[in-house]
Design a protein around this nucleic acid. Structure first.
Ligand SMILES: NC(=O)c1ccc[n+]([C@@H]2O[C@H](COP(=O)([O-])OP(=O)(O)OC[C@H]3O[C@@H](n4cnc5c(N)ncnc54)[C@H](O)[C@@H]3O)[C@@H](O)[C@H]2O)c1
Ligand SMILES: NC(=O)c1ccc[n+]([C@@H]2O[C@H](COP(=O)([O-])OP(=O)(O)OC[C@H]3O[C@@H](n4cnc5c(N)ncnc54)[C@H](O)[C@@H]3O)[C@@H](O)[C@H]2O)c1
Lengths: 224, 224
DNA sequence: TAGCATTTGTGAATGAATTCACAATCGTTA
DNA sequence: TAACGATTGTGAATTCATTCACAAATGCTA
């Protein structure tokens, strides 16, 4: 068989759904299910079976017709696709409200994201211990990122300084950044930047309560 | 002119982008800009001018041809659409890592989201003060939600108990819920539920680093 | 081993979101 | 007040995402 290589564009939504499948498969594995159908998988995340099958089909064929997907095997496969079957070295910058919460979140480590260094510029915080991690001085950013082989940086500093910090982070060679500051950061095109915008979902709820109370999913519009 | 009423479906992405426009307009207002073009507005959030104009056109025509949009006026209009020109009474359930971070976040209040009550079931936390708010006993959930006219509830409890909590919240008549627990919660169809899934964006970065390093936005797929 | 009930994998069809492209309209200037 | 550069608002075209629908496989049973 003459194997050839094709490239397919995978949408962001598909990747996000893979995260959901992965989560469900972890639960199913704990519940000792051997196999799972696209129908069951879909039901558990309020999706359609066709959606599940299409998403998975972008990456291969993991199921057995008439039976479904092998739970553990599929979990491993999706883990491979998402890069979760390994440990990622993560750094956090800004040990304030949200930064502390993230450091204290054990689930991240369980998923393979190990927060190895945390930075701040507050002298009262530098040197102190947060859940076993000593707070580094932001002035040693580049050195400490390199020494700890950091691959992913989480930004949890005030919006006003976020761009400066990101510039330094990029300069240090980091290619993946998760930003919690409510600001649109500029990074070179070879750096992956994702934003976590909590206000957005609150504002969506506000919109929903204001507009969608009756007549779901629609708004009134005056037309003359 | 015989005015009639039409209903148009507004997509979730459009609403999310309105949040971004609102954010930019707040900055522009502080910078004392009088007007802003769709081009400038787009540039500040890495979108296209056509996208901006189309989004706004769903709700009316706010601009002036040849000039652009009046900054303060447009901000007010979007605020009206999103329901941000008022105060929302919010309750938070689960004063742990992430719950404490949210309570300490002043920006929410500035946007009109006032956390009025916080609940926990931990006796050591109940009664204690968090940023001026006394922690309520989860056993008084229904009473305290009603007494404080709560309209939006934020769930920040462990995933294992989230569904039970949400059932009680729904029973108390709440119609809008923001959930931080990594689990797909079941709510009646007249309740708005939004999920904040931080792992998802980390996993997206993990995927990106694993697959997109060279050949942006694509994956290799074996074809025989 | 044949027949049946299931469920996958995937092209084709449909539906939704984005972008294009341009007429309409404004402010400005001479 | 006429001509011009700028920019909106919006149908139409296009691109992208989801759903449909069914042939191809599989396990199971008798
Ligand atoms: N707290 C929340 O729930 C929440 C929610 C959504 C978004 N955010 C965003 O996350 C960011 C942090 O919010 P927060 O509430 O944790 O704020 P915070 O003030 O509690 O924490 C910010 C931390 O960053 C540190 N810092 C400031 N300048 C720095 C610099 N130059 N270098 C290194 N560290 C520096 C501060 O010392 C502080 O420890 C903000 O951008 C905020 O808008 C927070
Ligand atoms: N910490 C993070 O950065 C983070 C990030 C993403 C998601 N989350 C999710 O947010 C939720 C909370 O995470 P956390 O790190 O804050 O956990 P946590 O254990 O620090 O806090 C949970 C809080 O909920 C309270 N609680 C437990 N059961 C309760 C009940 N029945 N009624 C009322 N209160 C109850 C606990 O007493 C505790 O104060 C979890 O579902 C977690 O997966 C957390």
């Amino acid at each position: 068989m003459a194997a050839s290589n094709s490239r397919k564009k995978i949408s962001e939504s598909t990747i996000h759904r893979l995260s959901l499948y992965y989560r469900v498969l972890s639960v199913l594995e704990k519940e000792n299910h051997q196999t799972v159908s696209s129908r069951e998988l879909a039901k558990r995340e309020k999706l359609t079976p066709a959606q599940v099958r299409k998403d998975l089909s972008f990456f291969g064929s993991f199921g057995t017709r008439g039976l479904g997907y092998p739970v553990s095997e599929l979990k491993k496969q999706i883990g491979d696709i998402l890069g979760l079957n390994r440990l990622w070295n993560v750094a956090l910058i800004g040990v304030g409200n949200i930064g502390s919460a993230l450091v204290g979140y054990k689930e991240f480590l369980r998923q393979g994201f190990r927060i190895r260094v945390i930075f701040d510029n507050d002298q009262r915080k530098i040197g102190s211990n947060h859940k076993g991690i000593k707070v580094s001085d932001i002035r040693n950013l580049e050195r400490d990122l390199r020494e700890n082989n950091i691959e992913i940086v989480v930004i949890a500093v005030p919006a006003t300084v976020a761009q400066y910090i990101v510039d330094d982070v990029v300069h240090a060679g980091i290619k993946a950044i998760l930003n919690f500051a409510p600001v649109n950061l500029k990074v070179p095109s070879d750096v992956f930047l994702r934003n976590e915008n909590m206000s957005m979902e609150l504002e969506y709820l506000s919109f929903a309560l204001s507009n969608l109370q009756n007549g779901r999913g629609t708004i009134k519009k005056e037309v003359s």
